[in-house]
Amino acid sequence: MRPLTDVETERLFEKLANYIGRNITHLIDRPTDPHCFRVQKDRVYYVRESIARLATSVAKANLLSLGTCLGKFTKTGKFKLHVTALDHIASHAKYKVWVKPNGEMPFLYGNNVLKAHVGRISEDTPEHQGVVIYSMNDTPLGFGVTARSTHEVRRLDPTSITAFRQSDVGEYLRDEDTLF
């Protein structure tokens, strides 16, 4: 377990900023409850500092997880955001897409969000913008990127894709073996 290097931090923040923009500062600056990022076996964890300190007593080989896993660095050095980061992203998300109840299950099975399933979408969402996908009762279901901007979405036909899925909570079942 170690703190991130500068390069790693940059790549991580780049990815996070895609979804939460400048709200990233809310993750970093928490004066009452300081948090930090830690790397353990290529996974990045976002964790309360006090817990990170306690975790130092666990040997590297035996430490499997601490706090919340945000994602992992691939072998090529890119950062991949995991669905486990959804909690933190969702609470600071800038752009959101709500799917109707009939679109929940298709999305949770790993499909993209179709126009027909979109219940609401944040105003002024640009194209290729990271968005958090919610169900109509405001439960975060996953995240992705928009295929079209809000204005264009209005003119789309029902079967065309509104947002590309990147991660959804269905992965807890589908990818349990690879996710952790």
């Binding site: 817990i51 430490l63 601490l66 706090g67 909690d87």
Partner: peptide, 13 residues
Amino acid sequence: HRLGVKNTIVCNY
């Protein structure tokens, strides 16, 4: 992670 628990340290001893 699914239950949104953030205060755990998981170890394998």
